[in-house]
Computed example of a mutant assay.
Amino acid sequence: MHAYYFDNLPGDQRAPHHGEELADIAILDKLGVLHWQIPVSTNGQYPEIDAIAKERDYKNRDVITITKEGLGELYESKIKMFYEEHMHEDEEIRYILDGSGYFDVREHPSDTWIRIAVSAGDLIVLPAGIYHRFTLDERNVIQAMRLFKDEPKWTPYNRDATTDTNPHRQHYLEVISVN
């Protein structure tokens, strides 16, 4: 995992858009973003992921693969949808098994984007209520294990006045203001 400020220049969202380096990765910690580097298993066993899942009460998981070939005609619309700024009322947990991409998170209170480059072996947890977006990188392939506290669901709430007052967003802001 590698994090830096997004440059906000026009261009393909899948390009690196590498701005200024984060001086301190503790910024992600302050935003509540958790991250680990866990080597991808060659035998399909994931004891470290299992331990984290148990500790954090993740009961379900699945694997998703996103490729241009796999999504066919839906590829461009899906990539645009993932890249809409949104939040969830649940944590977003992804363990990257193959490929690579970017999670962009909003720094608070500056509202600047921090780009987090993820690749195989990265486990990232975005807290409920954080504004974020996702895109593949220029390789156009990622395979990720998704972990869930309860039944798998992925409900995005695109940023607007309503999401700014969402109780999960408000709770997130309270938690990070204490950090």
Rank of each mutant, 00 (worst) to 15 (best):
R133C: 11
N8Q: 06
P39M: 09
V63I: 15
D62Q: 04
H88Q: 09
H168I: 03
F82A: 00
R133G: 05
N158E: 08
D62M: 07
V125A: 14
I27M: 14
H86W: 14
H171C: 13
Y4Q: 05
L22D: 00
G70M: 07
R146C: 11
E48S: 05
D29S: 08
A53F: 03
Q45W: 01
E69W: 03
R115P: 04
D122P: 10
K153D: 08
G72P: 04
N158G: 11
K153C: 05
Y83I: 02
R94C: 11
T112H: 14
I130M: 04
F148W: 12
A23L: 12
D24W: 08
A51P: 00
R146F: 09
L173T: 11
D111Y: 07
K78G: 01
E76V: 15
E85N: 12
V118S: 11
L97M: 11
D122F: 11
T155G: 00
I66Y: 11
K149Y: 03
D90T: 08
V33N: 07
Y58F: 10
I49T: 01
S100Q: 14
T162H: 07
L147G: 03
Y5G: 08
F134I: 05
F6D: 07
I64C: 03
R106Y: 05
R139Y: 01
I176N: 04
L173I: 11
Y5V: 13
Y131T: 12
N158A: 10
A51M: 01
S41N: 01
M87A: 13
R106Q: 07
M81V: 03
K54N: 04
G11H: 00
V63F: 03
F6N: 10
D137R: 06
D122M: 15
S41M: 00
P167V: 05
G121V: 01
L71P: 04
D24K: 10
Q170W: 00
R106I: 07
I38V: 01
D50E: 13
D160N: 15
L22F: 00
G32T: 10
E138A: 13
T135I: 10
D104I: 02
I114V: 15
L173Q: 13
L9F: 02
H18W: 03
Q143W: 06
G99I: 10
I142P: 02
E151G: 07
I27N: 05
I27W: 08
A53C: 10
